[in-house]
């Protein structure tokens, strides 16, 4: 599970507006063109003013090359308010067969999926919801890779989007310092940066995990808490997105 590990060194923040302008020109699919044309906020926008979108997906397994998306949850929010009332949730028929083992995790069953649309059918809605927003996830590699590969399979081109990763933010604070390095060196248990453990650090309540919408909400709450405790909400979004 290589991609579960957070990046060791801080990656350079991309120039997302430029990247979007470039993608808008080169993307072939009209929905993607529309998506990129909506653009992103300027890199110097204070985080407090950025429209955010918490996103979580449940999948048939952990390998983006073999597994597929089963459900998607979206919760729009800002640093002061989480708009649960505007959240979106889709169960989709996965492009790959559903494994019994994953049913145990996310609780979505074969019969539920049988009556669900294909990912292709929800993509127009999904891309409209994503347009102009900065996506917030817990562990960005999963969402990014699954989306890119799913689109690759459908439209023969991937997708890129700016992401704020609450797991990375947590790692910056929890997995630093000499104690953590020693623990790591000697193979001891390091402090967990998984969603539930991270939330507990901010006295956020325990939610039942592995429901795409609940996890998206949980991620939005976590970002609000992290910023309230550790960051200045007036810092530019460029310092947070990857």
């Amino acid at each position: 599970m290589l991609y579960l590990r957070p990046d060791r060194k801080q990656p350079q923040s991309k120039d997302w507006p430029a990247l979007f302008a470039q993608q808008a020109a080169t993307a072939r699919h009209p929905l993607l063109q529309t998506y990129y044309r909506a653009g992103v906020v300027k890199p110097d926008t204070p985080l407090a003013e950025v429209p955010l979108l918490a996103l979580d997906i449940e999948t048939t397994g952990l390998n983006p090359r073999q597994d597929a998306i089963v459900s998607i949850g979206l919760v729009p929010f800002t640093l002061t308010r989480i708009r649960v009332s505007h959240s979106r949730y889709w169960v989709v028929r996965p492009q790959r067969p559903l494994k019994t083992r994953s049913i145990v995790v996310h609780g979505i069953t074969h019969s539920e999926i049988a009556s669900s649309p294909d990912l292709a059918a929800v993509l127009p809605d999904l891309l409209r919801a994503l347009a102009g927003q900065v996506v917030v996830v817990h562990c960005r590699q999963i969402e990014r890779q699954f989306f890119a590969l799913a689109l690759q399979r459908l439209w023969q081109e991937g997708i890129v989007f700016p992401v704020i990763d609450t797991m990375e933010l947590e790692a910056q604070h929890v997995r630093t310092g000499i104690r953590d390095r020693i623990a790591h060196l000697f193979g001891r248990n390091r402090r967990s940066i998984r969603l539930a453990a991270s939330r507990a650090r901010y006295q956020l309540p325990a939610y039942r995990p592995h429901h795409a919408l609940t996890d998206a909400l949980a991620t939005a709450e976590l970002l609000q808490a992290q910023i309230a405790h550790r960051y200045d909400p007036q810092r530019p979004v460029a310092e947070f997105w990857r």
Partner: peptide
Amino acid sequence: TQVDVAYYK
């Protein structure tokens, strides 16, 4: 379905 959520330190 109608509620919003907010965290206060």
